[in-house]
Design a protein around this nucleic acid. Structure first.
Length: 305
DNA sequence: AAATTAGGTTACGCGAC
DNA sequence: GTCGCCAAACCTAATTT
């Protein structure tokens, strides 16, 4: 396995301050936080296996993959309370067994952290599935929660709030276009509290996230509006041209995305009303109007109604 | 459905309280 | 933890085209 070392500077901000994270197997920019390389660690199946049947088509490794979503990464084996081995015979060296249990206790229930972690991970799993978020996002959220927990940031805060904050930050990093409100609504937690918490976590842990761009919303909105991929491409194009003219700074990315989709849908012969787009994008019709007028104006696009 | 208008509300980081 | 800072961007709501 070889590590690709061709990437030497950030594609976004041209910084050379690249950070290699061994745990995640990825390289990201130390300045803007964008992930440049992923899956550097090779988790693919072994080239061949060595079982008795000589089965050469099954190249899988043994056992479930290691995951952040279980508090012991799914790799821990329990030691039974009985002083017997698997066949039921008494084990003679009881003191040794005692020592083994002691170590297991220490590693498993260190204070209350592991317990806290396992309940938090359950909540992350259930919330993420309700939010239609991929395994990748779940793993990242779990990772962030764990770091926050060991940095003592959960003390005096509810697990739920911290879970939401972790999920939101994971979203930002992986550009999955969910808002604090989306999460707050499903978790039934105040959005302000989540906002306050996720900001503190980011600051204390030194987590940086890529700047949000309108493009990350296009996919989701177009799907929700049942628009053809041609319309979607047109919307991307409009956003790209707007970015070249530096028109997007300070505006809400979802508003730009909504406006671009509106224009593309009208011009492309698959019209959607401002009302419909406002619905799926969580942006008002007024904002869509303002944005789309400005966009159509600057880009010389005719939108006839 | 879309446009217009007017007026109230938010988000941001940071320091002071 | 909250307040205040501030302007622009955003929102709500009513009304008109």
């Amino acid at each position: 396995m070889s590590v690709d070392t061709t990437v030497v500077k950030c594609s976004e901000c041209a910084s050379r301050n690249l950070v290699y994270d061994d745990n995640r197997g990825e390289r990201h920019c130390g300045d803007c936080g964008i992930v440049l390389e992923q899956d550097i660690i090779d988790a693919s199946p072994e080239w061949r296996n060595f079982n008795q049947e000589g089965n050469q088509t099954d190249r899988s490794r043994v056992g479930a993959p290691a995951t952040n979503l279980l508090h012991d990464k799914g790799l821990m084996t329990d030691i039974d309370w009985q002083d017997r081995d698997f066949s039921g015979a008494l084990i003679r060296n009881r003191s040794q067994l005692y020592r083994m249990r002691k170590w297991q206790r220490r590693s498993k229930i260190k204070g209350s952290r592991q317990k806290n972690l396992s309940t938090a991970l359950m909540k992350i799993r259930s919330l993420c599935s309700k939010l239609d978020l991929s395994k990748t996002v779940q793993e990242r959220a779990a990772d962030i929660y764990k770091k926050a927990l060991f940095a003592d940031l959960v003390r005096g805060r509810s697990i739920d709030t911290m879970v939401c904050a972790s999920i939101f930050i994971a979203n930002q990093q992986l550009q999955t276009a969910r808002t604090v409100d989306d999460i707050a609504k499903i978790a039934r937690i105040g959005p302000k509290e989540i906002g306050r918490t996720y900001r503190e976590v980011k600051r204390k842990l030194g987590i940086r996230t890529p700047l949000p761009t309108p493009t990350i919303y296009v996919d989701r909105f177009c799907n929700a509006l049942a628009l053809q991929t041609k319309i979607q491409r047109d919307a991307y194009d409009i956003i790209r041209r707007a970015e070249e003219l530096e028109m997007n700074d300070g505006k809400s990315p979802s508003g730009i995305a909504a406006a671009a989709i509106y224009i593309a849908s009208q011009v492309g012969g698959q019209p959607r009303t401002q009302r419909e787009i406002a619905e799926v994008s969580n942006v008002t019709e007024v904002t869509i109007r303002n944005r789309y007028k400005q966009l159509a104006d600057s880009l010389n696009i005719e939108v006839n109604l």
